[in-house]
Computed example of a mutant assay.
Amino acid sequence: MARAVAVGAGHCWSHSKTVILIWCICIFFYIFFFRMALQNSSSSSSSDKNTEQRSRLYDTMERGLDESGAAFLKHGETSQSLSLSDIFTLKNGSITPVLKAANPPVRATVLYLSPEYSVPISDNVKNTFSPYFDKVWFQNSSVYHFSMFHASHHIESIPATEDEIEAEANAVKAVADSLCPLKIVLDRVVLTSTGVLLGCWQVISGTDPLTIRAKLKSALPHAPKKQLYDAVILHTSFRKAFGSS
């Protein structure tokens, strides 16, 4: 009888352990998937917030021409407070950029837009705006890009040795390797009061520009505290207008 009781108790204990194990596994997976859902929800919420912030920024840029007027028709300044004659010259009726070394030197991280996409955009820009402006400089479609972060710029120069620049390049590469590919869509095209035609983009998927810039800021601790662009913006310069036909 004692043996029978002992066997029965062992069987019950074994069954209890099985039940406890199953419950533990269920709780583990519940917590795991619940946390994943929260993380995805938080990520989606953050993405929506960044998209809305970009839209508000683009709205402000869009109103700039109406509020400030077409300064480029009056030979105004560029966004870097340079006169147009400082960076462009008119030769035989054509606008030509004045090429000269940047002083102070600029070290910038940019996202490159492949000619697969930039060439069709450039062709459309030329076909659309050429009839209305006789003095236009079109950005070379082979160098369409998105400015992301500056390790040194014209407002705050950060000197660096060749070794330090190499270290910066490696740090930027490490950030790039950790990012998800961006899938973007052209949200709108804006003409600024200084005559720059900008493509303003939104992010459909991938690492948001705000996150990219935050990672670059951490990777480049000696970079200027004040960057040149809003952290959420994703824009490309298509062309510069100087006058109308």
Rank of each mutant, 00 (worst) to 15 (best):
V125Q: 10
L65Q: 03
V136S: 13
S142N: 08
L38P: 04
H150C: 04
H235T: 11
N40H: 10
H145R: 05
S43D: 08
T236R: 15
E156P: 00
A2W: 13
K215N: 11
V125T: 13
T236M: 15
T128F: 15
L234A: 12
N40T: 08
F88L: 01
V106F: 01
V125D: 09
F72N: 00
I233W: 06
V190Q: 10
I155A: 00
D208F: 08
Q80S: 04
I155C: 00
T207S: 09
A102Q: 02
F146C: 02
F149Q: 02
V172Q: 01
K17G: 08
L99R: 15
S244T: 12
I121H: 14
S14E: 01
T18V: 14
T194P: 04
Q53M: 14
A4Q: 05
L186D: 13
D66F: 05
H145P: 14
L73H: 00
V125E: 10
I22W: 05
F88S: 03
Y144K: 14
E166L: 04
D208V: 09
K240G: 05
S237L: 06
V185R: 15
T78L: 02
E164C: 01
M36N: 07
F28W: 08
I20M: 07
S55C: 13
S16D: 06
K225M: 00
M36H: 03
R35N: 11
V19W: 12
D208C: 06
F133P: 02
N92A: 08
V106Q: 00
T161H: 07
K135M: 13
F29D: 11
P104Y: 08
L210W: 15
N92P: 01
S44F: 14
Y30F: 15
M61Y: 12
S237G: 11
L84V: 05
H235E: 11
K126E: 10
C200R: 06
S68M: 07
C200M: 09
L186R: 14
D59Q: 14
L234T: 11
P131F: 07
T207G: 05
V106L: 01
I27E: 09
